[in-house]
Design a protein around this nucleic acid. Structure first.
Length: 825
RNA sequence: GCCGAAGUGGCGGAAUGGGUAGACGCGCUGGUCUCAAAAACCAGUGGGGUUUCCCCGUGCCGGUUCGAGUCCGGCCUUCGGCACCA
């Protein structure tokens, strides 16, 4: 028997034993209920850091808990291997992205293994493994076949000095992070996935996501940004061209006094070609360089724009209004053109005031009389339509939703339309370290998809990494030159790679059958394991990753590959581990790694400490003060169990069966089982641990005073329950202690302890007596005290009577089993 | 700026359905043990006062209620996301 808590030795011992016993391997078993618990896989940026520990702790506790509740648990781990940092490393230090990534994966894996997470490592995957990314390419082809992947012009950050495309991250203050040159926007032909086709379903199916935090659903709903309104066609007076616009306020059509185009709108160039206005447009665009869309569209941003010398004709009244281009109009939203109604839209109002454009009131507030010259802001609320042709005097809400849309449709000037803020998903990246898009360009056949049997399109190893100029793939002759799969003639490969969010949009499916050579996943395995029962990940992924994964799942359902609509039934979004208020990241240089702490205190201590730091959803400021406390607690448990083992070794006095101490032990045990069980179910791991600490403190008090009481059924039950309850949180020490108390290997395979509600219930409660809502006395009473009895006890309390002297009782509020409040006049 | 969160002792946090604010832990103070120290154990620990008791107190201002950390309205600060970081 080991007397000292030698965490290093025992953690090493059990790590090996678990591996030998293949304790966490899982296989499909139709006889048992399954539970798929998944924590978002990491980008391998280096060794494990505290953020990873905080993340993966949560999944591991749940996996261990549900296994012991008899569930067949799938708890896998893998690597989101592609990404920008690997390529930056290659440029900076000449390390090949592949080596950089696989080295980091090895480091990170070692860190996670030291922490004792119960993954089925046989299912490990990496998105940068050709065996994985061939299927990412395969999915691209399926999307392409269904018309869900298409190529179109799109804007990219362009550094004119480096002649390269920049990620948003590489643009700092509107300038290139390397050479400080003002970043421009450049239009490139790029690949998109048609997520907007699924906007309606992404919204509608949210009613299946009752297991998601409401805040995440709200963010997604707002991101999709569905709005109902009308599409109305204006005509350019000078050229006769038709320009459709989208508006949610058709009731304000009679108040249009000018017309706006996004700066990137092709008509801006067309209309000003060879006119004196061209110069103004150039100057305006120059001012927009280096200004992000967020800044441009900020409500507080200074309005900017220029007149284009042309006019738009309003279909409803034939009025000709000037066409301008303005900074706050986005090409990506709607049609890139808007009708401007300065009286009833704040941004239009500010623009009109700045450039002296007319303001025309067409909605009067109820009982009000707005005059354009007196207005200080736009009137955006409903009211009565005025100066609006046939709709004079109509309620604007009726005009907006029914009458005006009908009117436009009857005359063919416009139609009801739904617009989304959501844009199609731009997946093209002009980078090396990603999945090559499996498309070939043939001079004869045009764009040709790579046949399935030719997948994967492998990334060439031998390429050059420099920051400037075209991407390594584009410069690689060897990669680009190929033959057309259709005609066999000379052809060129697509050199764009895919956004890494594509890789992570389907990895949860691959875990079901990670070694399948013939398909992305085995439908039978997926039918058994999917959807993910509990998904866990950072709140920073609330929108994009989760939305893209939902989209992928829906497309897969349409392809007949899965039979569910939503990939993640329940979602837990945890906060981040922050350092000095900022999230831990290598680029900020504030990464704390677990290794040193594991060396000094052991993995159990670190796991326990991080869980104890606070609730999962909250951000956690890293502060190592307190880790000693977690270690001290494990030491206390260790010593308590050994004290108990000592008692068993020596003969002890028999304890009478009705002894109060035995009742107290039972109550303490069952109360704790109840509390810990309920807390785990609601992810309150910090309070579950606090309850186990209280349990330990309570047992200490009893064992000091009544050691004999521990050589009884109640004593054995208490000690064994302590070990069983602590096991999901501190898997190593509990395995050792379990063995020492004669438990059967493994503690992690023991059924979760049950509690007896009668024993968990307290017999006495504290009755709180208040006068006018202020606590004046606390009286201990039987738990099953009647309401009238509570009132009588409170009123007879000397402290209460003293407080009531000279006052008249107005009423008495009794909260059964809790409190009596005496209200005076 | 827009969308979504969060603000409670010296610190991390607890209070699960409107009902005892501060569980549990850290830190600190005092004590026991020791030649001494460490460890361990015991006691105390929101602020204030006229200290058997009373007052104040959950970011700020206001409201609802017998009763508000919790609900409502308005603000402030911090964090996350904003479509090429993942």
């Amino acid at each position: 028997m080991e007397e000292r808590y030698d965490f290093a030795r025992l953690e090493e011992k059990w790590r090996r034993r678990w591996e030998e016993a293949d304790l966490y391997r899982c296989v499909e078993d139709e006889e048992r209920p399954k539970k798929y618990i998944l924590v978002m896989f990491p980008y391998p940026s280096g060794p494990a850091h505290m953020g990873h520990v905080a993340n993966y702790n949560l999944g591991d506790v749940l996996a261990r808990y549900f296994r012991r509740r008899g569930m067949n648990v799938l708890h896998p781990m893998g690597w989101d291997g592609f990404g920008l940092p690997a390529e930056n490393a290659a440029i900076r230090s000449g390390v090949h992205p592949s080596k950089y990534t696989w080295d980091n994966i090895a480091l990170l894996k070692e860190g996670l293994q030291r922490l004792g997470y119960s993954y089925d490592w046989s299912r490990e995957l990496a998105t940068c493994d050709p065996e994985y990314y061939r299927w990412t390419q395969w999915f691209f082809l399926k999307f392409y076949e269904r018309g869900l992947a298409y190529k179109a012009l799109a804007w990219a950050n362009w550094c004119p000095s480096c002649r390269t495309v920049l990620a948003n991250e590489q643009v700092v203050g509107g300038r290139c992070e390397r050479c400080d040159t003002l970043v421009e926007q450049k239009a490139l032909p790029q690949w998109f996935l048609r997520i907007t086709d699924y906007a309606e379903r992404l919204l509608a199916d949210m009613d299946q996501l009752s297991g998601w935090p409401e805040s995440v659903l709200t963010m997604q709903r707002n991101w999709i940004g569905r709005s109902e309104g009308c599409e109305v066609t204006f005509r350019v007076k000078e050229t006769g061209q038709e320009i459709p616009i989208f508006t949610t306020r058709p009731d304000t059509l009679w108040g249009v006094t000018f017309f706006l185009l996004a700066p990137e709108h092709p008509l801006v160039d067309e209309l000003t070609e060879g006119t004196p206005y061209r110069e103004g447009v150039q100057a305006f665009r120059e001012r927009l360089k280096g200004v992000s869309a967020i800044e441009r569209t900020s409500l507080e941003a200074e309005k900017d724009g220029v007149f284009l010398g042309a006019h738009a004709v309003n279909p409803v009244n034939g009025e000709e209004v000037p066409i301008w281009t303005a900074n706050f109009v986005l090409m990506e939203y709607g049609t890139g053109a808007v009708m401007a109604v300065p009286a009833h839209d704040q941004r239009d109002f500010e623009f009109a005031r700045k450039f002296g454009l007319p303001i025309k009131v067409v909605i009067q507030p109820p009982g009000g009389d707005l005059r354009p010259e007196e207005m200080t802001e736009a009137y955006v609320d409903p009211g009565i339509m005025v100066h609006s042709g046939p709709f004079e005097g109509l309620d604007s809400e009726e005009g907006r939703t029914v009458r005006v849309p009908d009117y436009l449709e009857e005359r063919g000037w416009g139609k009801r339309a739904v617009n989304y803020r959501l844009r199609d998903w731009l997946i093209s990246r002009q980078r090396y370290w990603g999945v090559p898009i499996p498309i070939v360009y043939c001079s004869r056949c045009g764009m040709v998809p790579v046949p399935e049997e030719d997948l994967p399109v492998l990334l060439p190893e031998d390429v050059e990494f420099i920051f400037e100029g075209p991407s390594p793939l584009e410069r690689s002759e060897e990669f680009r030159r190929t033959v057309c799969p259709r005609c066999g003639g000379e052809a060129e490969r697509e050199t764009d790679t895919m956004d890494t969010f594509v890789d992570s949009s389907w990895y949860y499916l691959r875990y079901a059958s990670p070694r399948d050579k013939d398909r992305p996943f085995d439908p039978r395995a997926v039918r058994y394991w999917l959807p993910v029962d509990q998904y866990i990940g950072g709140i920073e992924h609330a929108i994009m990753h989760l939305l893209y994964s939902r989209f992928f799942t829906k497309v897969l359902k349409d392809l007949g590959m899965v039979d569910f609509d939503e990939p993640f039934t329940n979602l837990l979004c945890q906060g981040m581990v922050v350092m000095g208020g900022a999230k831990m990241s290598k680029s900020k240089g504030n990464v704390i790694t677990p290794e040193g702490f594991i060396d000094s205190y052991g993995a159990d201590t670190l796991r326990l400490f991080i869980l104890f730091l606070g609730p999962p959803e909250a951000d956690k400021e890293w502060n190592e003060a307190g880790i000693e406390g977690a270690h001290r607690f494990l030491h206390r448990v260790w010593r308590l169990v050994h004290r108990y083992l000592d008692i068993l070794t020596f003969k002890t006095q028999p304890v009478p069966e009705d002894a109060e101490v035995l009742k107290r032990l039972s109550h303490l045990t069952h109360r704790t089982i109840k509390k810990v069980t309920e807390d785990i179910e609601r992810f309150a791991f910090n309070t579950a641990i606090a309850a186990i600490m209280e349990f330990t403190n309570g047992l200490y008090r009893e064992i000091e005073e009544y050691p004999d009481a521990f050589n009884t059924y109640e004593g054995h039950e208490a000690i064994r329950s302590l070990i069983l309850l602590l096991a999901p949180f501190a898997p190593f020490i509990t395995e050792e202690l379990w063995e020492e108390v004669g438990g059967e290997f493994s503690v992690h395979q023991q059924p979760w302890p049950d509690y007896d509600p009668r024993l968990a219930r307290s017999e006495r409660i504290t009755l709180v007596a208040q006068v006018d809502g202020k606590v004046r006395d606390r009286i201990e009473v039987d738990a099953d005290v009647a309401e009238e009895e509570m009132e009588r006890i409170a009123l007879s309390s000397p402290k209460i009577r003293k407080n009531l002297e000279g006052r008249e009782i107005a009423r008495v509020v009794v909260v059964p089993g809790k409190l009596v409040n005496i209200v005076t006049r």
